[in-house]
Design a protein around this nucleic acid. Structure first.
Lengths: 337, 337
DNA sequence: TTTATTTACGCAACCGTTTTCGCTATTTCG
DNA sequence: CGAAATAGCGAAAACGGTTGCGTAAATAAA
């Protein structure tokens, strides 16, 4: 038995290949009866068109590339969920690539995309990334790139984020109102705009409350678990230790809990904690963690929807637009009040 | 400027298209000097071959399809991580598809794979799936399918799982040894072999300890959160309520905690809980949850490695093999002892 | 009735690579 | 030294759809 192609159908129905193709794509050039016959046979023989032949000719792959730092992460996995919902609805396929927070990985992934493998890209850049040349390079080849969550502001494209500044501000306010005298900002060393936004929100709250801010109020972590544990351990053991933490990275909040456990520091008695986090176990932690929950699903869904809509247009242009979907502060026992 | 193809290089170097192609693929037919020239120009012009043209001609896509029920799940996201590690190493691309536990979705995804979109498939079947016809159908088209975690035993292929039976047995033993008189098995209605294995392990432990087993020892849940909450609420409020739970689904353990919180049931005082779970927050829950941690990363990695190795061979055959990677029981405060 | 338009389909080029086969020039070997 | 082997490259046919254009017949307009 040969492979089942359009030619098989053509031969069987005594029609030309082009007629079959047009019939399958529901072209107006083909009569209703012919279409019916073609569809019927295709169905009967269980014909599925070769996507690569189609992609080659149409210069469209119906595929979007998703580039994220990691997948074992509530935020990103929820984002994927949102992305997939749109992809499925619109008949797109989703290629997933992980950078593991490495700039080199990110670069080589985007380089591969220059081949036309994907019609468009959704990316949340990695921590190491300092400049956006590789992204601009890809966009110059007419591959649209849309940012979500971790964005670069100097790239002209859509950026779907949450209201990081406001959230950090509100959360810090909440800490202070709950009695914190010495709030600290837990973060990672990075050029990411998102981190900076959160830091600025933190600063503004301190400023408004006439609390002094200095670099000492920042606890900088890295991508190394051990190292972060030690950093936090030292900070939380110090004499003039913080009595409140705004944690800007979900993963770090777990380490904070661990350190407190090991140090015998009571939360929220000795230390209040609020974290950016999408953990659905947050309310079952000991104690339940006050979180800023990002609308991860919606962020992914929105970014994907905008990308797909653009791709479906003939001469699409991606606007330079900032789409902000607000997060929610959920107060639990890790902060008083 | 035209598109940059092999023809561009050919024209530039006054060579034929076929020579370029062979040079790029490092064919022995081409002299070292020519290869160097070609590589140099390709590099200089930043040439990237069109993957779809290549896939069409070679009838290989260098792409694997991953079909899972959901992605917002520690186990599956860790599995993806493992899969990606192999894919990256071997130059494969990963298409992700979510079934959302719907059999119809699963079927239509596999149907699409008949088009040759992917070279091979890694699948963890969904709960609704009762038979494996759709999988056999795909395999009959020479698309290799490898199972991981949630398998079908009547399909002749590799199945990468963990030692579900033993783990359930050990965990149940642990419950009983910690004083449980009335252990229950929390599960979902499903034909999944994995669920059955766990149940059998549970049964064996009861049997060995001369404890009677009946259908009453099973708490059957569904995919509906609300409904599960109610089911568990009722069960845990009953007069002859369980004093120990073996939870076979990660997500359900969170609901159990919630119900206990709302009912004022102390864990582990009134109820001991052990769950199959890959939550890395397990040790920070209130109380820390005793878990059977599955080697999700390794399972994904192993399955992917076997698939890729098969794909790289000329006339590959997938053996009918069961690969078992053991899980680990981590005892925490949600069970006494 | 003539002309213009529409309908429905076929022809063939094309998408960009890969691969088979054939050709020539050079080398190897008996 | 002649034959055989080899090295290095090119021509062209795939791979499986898509699409612009041409055309004959059917229909509408004049």
């Amino acid at each position: 038995m040969d492979k089942l192609t359009i030619k098989t159908l053509a031969k069987e129905l005594q029609l030309s290949v082009s007629t079959i193709s047009k019939a399958l794509r529901d072209s107006h050039e083909i009569s209703i009866e012919t279409k019916k016959k073609v569809l019927a046979l295709a169905d009967q023989l269980n014909y599925t068109p070769n996507p690569y032949a189609s992609s080659l000719r149409k210069r469209k792959s119906k595929t979007i590339g998703v580039v994220i730092p990691e997948v074992v992460n509530s935020f990103f996995s929820q984002s994927i969920n949102g992305i997939e919902s749109i992809a499925k609805e619109k008949g797109y396929h989703v290629l997933i690539y992980l950078t593991h927070e490495s700039f080199d990985n990110e670069k080589s992934i985007l380089k591969d995309f220059e081949s036309g493998r994907v019609d468009g890209v959704l990316i949340s850049v990695c921590r190491e990334t300092e400049n956006s040349e590789h992204i601009k390079e890809l966009m110059s080849k007419d591959v649209p790139v849309i940012f979500f969550d971790r964005v670069f502001n100097d790239v002209n494209t859509v950026k779907v984020t949450t209201n990081d500044f406001d959230c950090a501000y509100n959360a810090t306010k909440h800490l202070i109102e709950s009695g914190c005298k010495n709030p600290h900002f837990v973060s990672i060393i990075s050029h990411l705009d998102i981190i900076n936004c959160r830091l600025e929100g933190f600063k503004k709250a301190l400023d408004e409350c006439k609390m002094p801010f200095s670099a000492g109020n920042i606890i900088n972590c890295t991508t190394n678990w051990e190292q972060n544990y030690n950093t936090l351990y030292k900070k939380l053991k110090a004499v003039k230790k913080p009595d409140g933490l705004l944690c800007s990275i979900e993963n770090l909040s777990i380490i904070i809990y661990k350190v407190c456990q090991d140090l015998g520091l009571k939360i929220p008695g000795a230390l209040q904690v609020v974290s950016f986090s999408n953990l659905d176990t947050a309310s079952f932690l000991h104690p339940p963690l006050t979180t800023i929950t990002q609308p991860a699903y919606e962020i992914g869904k929105t970014a994907a929807a905008i990308l797909v809509k653009a791709l479906e247009k003939k001469n699409f242009t991606i606007p330079n637009e900032q789409v902000v979907i607000p997060s929610e502060l959920t107060i639990r026992q890790s902060t008083k009040n």
